[in-house]
Amino acid sequence: MSDVVNRSERHRFELDLGDGEVGFAEYRLLDGKRILFPHTVVPDGHEGHGYGTRLIEAGLEYAREHELKVIPKCPFFAAYMRKHAETRDLLDPGSAELLD
């Protein structure tokens, strides 16, 4: 299994799970200041192994490195940020309700 790769041409972070299966976290760059994460997918049979967490952490690291504020529309992303207070500085101020 490989590390998470940013497939910018597809607007998603991908994780090769083997046997042709890929987990991914989609994103959209907005106005050069924000990144929206609408959807995260881990194929059936691969849940519970931390793959989704790895995808989210890669996305948040990218946001931090590029000084982007995060809009966590994906419920999995929002739950991660809710649970990990150290990520709150990345939250887009207009998106606080997504963590409620």
Rank of each mutant, 00 (worst) to 15 (best):
G48L: 14
G23A: 14
L98G: 00
I71A: 07
R64P: 11
H49D: 08
E57V: 11
A85T: 14
R82H: 10
D92I: 11
F13I: 05
G52H: 06
G52F: 02
F77Q: 13
E67W: 12
F77N: 03
I71K: 09
V5L: 13
G48R: 06
E9V: 15
K69N: 03
D44N: 11
S8Q: 14
L90E: 04
G20K: 00
A25Y: 02
E65P: 07
L60H: 09
E9N: 15
F24C: 02
T40M: 11
L99V: 05
C74P: 01
D44R: 11
M81F: 05
E67D: 15
D89N: 07
A25Q: 12
Y80S: 08
L17N: 01
H49I: 05
A79D: 13
E26R: 11
H46W: 02
V5F: 12
L17E: 01
V41D: 10
I71V: 12
P93L: 12
L68K: 01
G59N: 02
D19Y: 07
G45A: 02
R34H: 14
T53N: 13
A78E: 00
R10A: 14
G59L: 09
E47M: 05
S95Q: 03
L91S: 08
A78W: 01
D31T: 13
A63W: 06
E86Q: 13
R54Y: 06
E65V: 01
R54N: 06
K83V: 01
L15N: 00
F77L: 13
G52L: 04
L55P: 05
S2C: 09
K73C: 03
T53Y: 09
I35E: 06
Y80F: 14
G18P: 03
V22D: 08
F24M: 05
L15W: 01
D19H: 08
V70S: 01
V22F: 11
D100Y: 13
R54T: 03
G94C: 11
M1F: 15
F13G: 03
K69R: 14
P93H: 08
E26W: 02
D44W: 06
D100L: 15
D19Q: 09
L15Q: 02
P43V: 04
S95I: 07
D3Y: 02
L99C: 06
E67T: 12
R64Q: 15
L91A: 09
L30A: 12
E86L: 12
R64M: 14
A25T: 02
F77D: 05
P43L: 03
E57N: 12
E67H: 15
G48S: 08
H11I: 00
V70D: 01
V42L: 09
H66C: 05
M81S: 06
F77T: 12
Y27G: 01
F37G: 00
V70P: 00
